[in-house]
Design a protein around this nucleic acid. Structure first.
Length: 501
RNA sequence: CGGGGUGUAGCGUAGUCUGGCCUAACGCGCCUGGUUUGGGACCAGGAGGUCGCCGGUUCGAAUCCGGCCGCCCCGACCA
């Protein structure tokens, strides 16, 4: 059978991306324009991400809450930058009832809302409107909240996971008594995102502020983690905003300090979304299918028993079940978020072994165990690493040693995926010392570090002429005096440009 | 919303220009039976379609004409 092949990355990267999502059963486009259905295999990855992030949030003192999906229109008018920033992509609810006319359902014109409701594109307004009632004293601060939610941004063009009209995310919203504390929080949370990206997703990121032109509407400044995909395009993977007192002033959120004076509260917000799944795919996967780093893998190990006869099958299945149980019974450790290893025994004997191997590779399961009569005869099995080809198979691994070997292997895969992605990212960072050189290098993809005069005008011009944007002004950049590649004006260091998703 | 394309079985397509052996074909997938099984097996049989929708032309429409709708790509916008 000629199995449906995945388009190779070199042939058509964007088709490859869609093929992976389809064949690994992660998501599909729904009949609702711009909205995706996240299928079980995709949602399982999101659940793993949620669990890990939620722990990191709780460990830094945050608690979860939930705010309404709908936001009264007038809330948006209170914070100008935000209203302007999101105006063009809001879904608006205008009526609250349908009626049936000659067998056809229509919106009941009698049921028009007095004030339209906006489906949240982000929740700063509704949350700060609520904070007004929660904050009176400096003793009420800080308020460290997070919510897991869906939001809607009416995008014109969508791509599965990377940009959909509705997406799932978490949004942290905090209120503080001092500017310093809020800025520390902003910085702390971008660091949490960096850790998650690098230690769980095995996805290296640049960390630092966005330029004025790229910051969040309503923010004083925006910190971000910025990743690089295999095709050389950048992906904004998470943002943490210092909102100053903008929202406190818009919603009149004040408190009395310990000297009895009234002050406006200081705000932050920060979020990551299901877009991370797109980033995960485009960081690690190959032409054979999805590759998921072990710490986020919904299934860690797939065991494939092999046999021709019923007797052989019975025996290899039994051995597979025993190994699966041994793996599940291993002591839980922090590396796997104190959860048991998830192991599947593949009893699909309808298909040939090669087909079954390929299917597990397609789904990105990090470790596959092959267990046939020949292995069983010597009480052994074969271990295969998803991130390595057929050459990486380990033959004749004694069944008694297998669980320990597999745990070691999972840890190796995690660090090896990160090392590989970081090596790729590092060799994709180039420098440009003139605008001409920049234009050439930006064509090749990757980050191009260049001097920029710090103005919005120059940034806009570069974007217009090259489609590249400033992705990040990395915290760890070298301070060096230079001249803007476009205007020749002075610059205190290079910033990271790239074409982005 | 501008420019370009496209709509035929669950998916991917052929057929449309030049109307008629199209009573709609092919591949994948699906169902049944059998042979297979250490890197994507094979054989046989079978199920599945208002050819996007509405109207028109014609003896006859997937095919021609008109209108509508959906989707895709390119642009403006973007976690």
């Amino acid at each position: 059978m000629a199995a449906e092949k995945i388009t190779s990355r070199s042939q058509d990267y964007s088709q490859w991306y869609l093929d992976i999502i389809h064949r690994a059963g992660l998501a599909e486009n729904s009949d609702v324009r711009g909205c995706m259905v996240i299928k079980p295999n995709g949602y399982a990855i999101w659940e793993k991400m949620q669990r890990a992030l939620d722990r990191l949030f709780k460990d830094t003192g945050h608690v979860n809450a939930y705010f309404p999906l709908f936001i009264p229109k007038n809330f948006f008018q209170k914070e100008e930058q935000m209203a302007e920033g999101f105006a063009k992509e809001c879904a608006v609810v205008t009526h609250y009832r349908l009626r049936s006319r000659q067998g056809k359902i229509e919106v009941d014109p009698e049921a028009k809302l007095e004030e339209e409701l906006i489906v949240r594109p982000t929740s700063e307004t509704i949350i700060w409107n609520t904070f007004k009632n929660w904050i009176q004293s400096y003793r009420d601060l800080p308020l460290l909240l997070n919510q897991w939610a869906n939001v809607v941004r009416w995008e014109m063009r969508t791509r599965l996971f990377l940009r959909t009209a509705e997406f799932l995310w978490q949004e942290g919203h905090t209120a503080h008594a001092t500017q310093q504390e809020a800025e520390d929080e902003t910085r702390q949370m971008v660091e949490v995102y960096r850790r998650f990206a690098e230690e769980w997703m095995a996805m290296p990121v640049l960390v630092g502020p966005k330029s004025e032109g790229q910051k969040f509407p309503g923010a004083v400044y925006t910190l971000c983690i910025e990743a690089l995909m295999q095709d050389g395009r950048a992906l904004q993977a998470g943002t943490s905003h210092f909102l100053g007192q903008n929202f406190a002033k818009a919603f009149d959120v004040t408190f009395q300090n310990d000297k009895g004076q009234r002050e406006f509260a200081w705000a932050t917000s920060w979020g990551v979304s299901t877009r991370l799944i797109g980033g995960l795919i485009m960081t690690h996967s190959d032409d054979q299918g999805l590759i998921v780093p072990p710490r986020l893998a919904p299934i860690h190990v797939a065991i494939v028993p092999i046999g021709k006869t019923d007797e052989e099958r019975d025996q290899t299945v039994q051995a597979a079940e025993r190994l699966a149980q041994a793996l599940r019974d291993l002591p839980r450790e922090s590396f796997f978020d104190y959860e048991p290893l998830i192991v599947r025994v593949d009893k699909d004997f309808q298909h040939m072994p090669g087909f079954r191997f390929a299917e597990w590779e397609l789904k990105g399961v990090p470790v596959r165990v092959e267990l046939g009569p020949k292995d069983l005869a010597q009480n052994a099995c074969v271990l295969a690493r998803r991130d390595m080809g057929k050459e990486g198979k380990q033959l004749g691994v004694p069944l008694t040693e297998a669980p320990a070997r597999i745990v070691t292997m999972l840890k190796e895969i995690q660090s090896s995926l990160f090392a590989k992605a970081r090596a790729f990212r590092d060799r994709s960072i180039h420098q440009a010392n003139s605008y001409d050189e920049f234009k050439k290098k930006i064509e090749d993809g990757g980050f191009v570090m260049a001097h920029w005069d710090g103005t919005r005008e120059t940034e806009d011009r570069i974007q217009e002429e090259t489609k590249a944007t400033i992705r990040c002004i990395p915290f760890d950049r070298v301070k060096e005096a230079g001249q803007c590649m476009v205007t020749g004006r002075s610059s205190e260091g290079r910033v990271a440009f790239a074409r982005a998703y």
